[in-house]
Amino acid sequence: MTAETPPEPEDLPMTADAPSPTLDETVGDHHAPVPEAHEPHLEPKVVFDVQDLNVFYGAFKAVRDVNLNIHQHEITAFIGPSGCGKSTVLRCFDRMNDLIESARVEGKVLYHGVDLYDARVDPVEVRKRIGMVFQKPNPFPKSIYDNIAFGPRLAGMKDDLDDRVEKALRQAALWDEVKDRLKKSAMGLSGGQQQRLCIARAIAVEPEVVLMDEPCSALDPIATARIEDLMQEIKSEYTILIVTHNMQQAARVSDRTAFFTTEVNPEGDHRTGVLVEYDSTDKMFSAPSDERTENYVTGRFG
């Protein structure tokens, strides 16, 4: 969307920090203002550097050889047809694939230079820093307040919990609608409100990154528009990755877009997801360099 988006990210040098062994040393004050990120012609900081990522479910290779960089304070969209592995790749960024017993990951997902799949990395710590919003709104059957306070309580952020809850709800543009019913069950909210609640829950711990897995697929267009506005509002503080089936949504909200598709594997017995093209959203939708991308974004998908 923004005109500042630097061109040709692949041609620019990586700016990742030098690799360091633990997450603690690498995550500095990422909420400090990063003015240079919004000045034109300067490459924003790389948050994730994905190298030769392959994901398997048992013997089935779901995603093959993904390489891409995710930039700070940008919205990166993953688009592509069903089964192309975009959600699978997204779930590598907070190790949610660990929850699937047969899932196995090869390659590297460097987060500020630290490989998230290093044996010393605790997935629980990863998920505390990298928030996630899911396809279906999934508030806990608790009060609105307790939903938002869940993450801060887990992380031991007990001070000023009320302020923290209010801030998260304000950021998620939900405060005015729920401020008088914080003690009421979150299950009584509408679908769109529930999804904004889930976003508020994710950002209440001030993660650096928010992963969104088709966050609007269960919502009507009005609720979708509110979520999209909200993403624009918060992107100055968070790095956002969004998987979406909706190409217009990717075009509207994202700074960069990655297009995935499926390819029949060499053995010819199943289809594996591959990253076709990754570029600034403007370029992806106006002048994609790969024919498959063009066919997809123009609706001539084959």
């Binding site: 629980v124 996630m132 887990l154 992380a155 829950r201």
Partner: peptide, 15 residues
Amino acid sequence: VPRSQREAAYGMGAT
């Protein structure tokens, strides 16, 4: 218990 509930908790960094 829906998978989405488990994922919600795990996604927040729950053990």
